[in-house]
């Protein structure tokens, strides 16, 4: 059975709204007040669930949105890109900005169809440009990691 895009969207919003509401109920009230940290999130969660409900009802009445189709190849490519960024995030502090950025840019250039030579030139030159722009000019504390003995 195929589900339509709007039915999936509406359902996800209702579930997310409900989860947020349950989370908001866990925020304790301060002494002497009838409303606390959970008051505003409860309003927001109700709004989210109601929006989801309206999308769902609208779709059930009109049946106008296209069916939800999962293109596995597209999903794999996005997952691969996310994987590269996650690895970059994990390596950023211990290995350092320079090595991890060169590696990320090299991999992403190949991912988008660049040649090995282009990937090598771009990753090194872009990392140097980012170093000058953010580290040297703007004084952002980019970690040196393994290259700390060579820091300049």
């Amino acid at each position: 059975m195929q589900i339509s895009r709007d039915i999936a969207t509406g359902t996800v919003l209702i579930v997310a709204g409900a989860a947020m509401f349950v989370g908001a109920r866990g925020f304790m009230l301060p002494a002497g007040l009838d409303y606390g940290a959970g008051f505003f999130p409860k309003i927001v969660s109700c709004g989210m669930a109601v929006s989801g409900l309206l999308i769902l009802v609208g779709e059930l009445r009109s049946r106008s949105s296209e069916p939800l189709t999962i293109v596995w190849r597209a999903l794999r490519r996005i997952a691969a890109l996310i994987g590269m960024i996650v690895l970059y995030g994990l390596a950023f502090d211990p290995i350092g900005f320079h090595i991890s950025t060169v590696a990320l840019l090299f991999a992403v250039t190949l991912f988008f169809g660049g040649s090995i030579a282009a990937a090598a030139i771009l990753s090194v030159s872009a990392t140097l440009m980012l170093h000058v722009c953010f580290y040297s000019v703007m004084k952002v504390a980019l970690p040196w990691g393994l290259l700390l003995p060579f820091a300049w």
Partner: peptide
């Protein structure tokens, strides 16, 4: 194919520069 990696690098380091933490990623 060359622009996209540049945008990614710039965006990630731009985000890091604001929070000064990998958490931004």
């Amino acid at each position: 194919r060359l622009l996209m990696p540049l945008i990614l690098g710039l965006s990630l380091i731009g985000g890091f520069a604001v929070m000064n933490s990998v958490f931004s990623i």
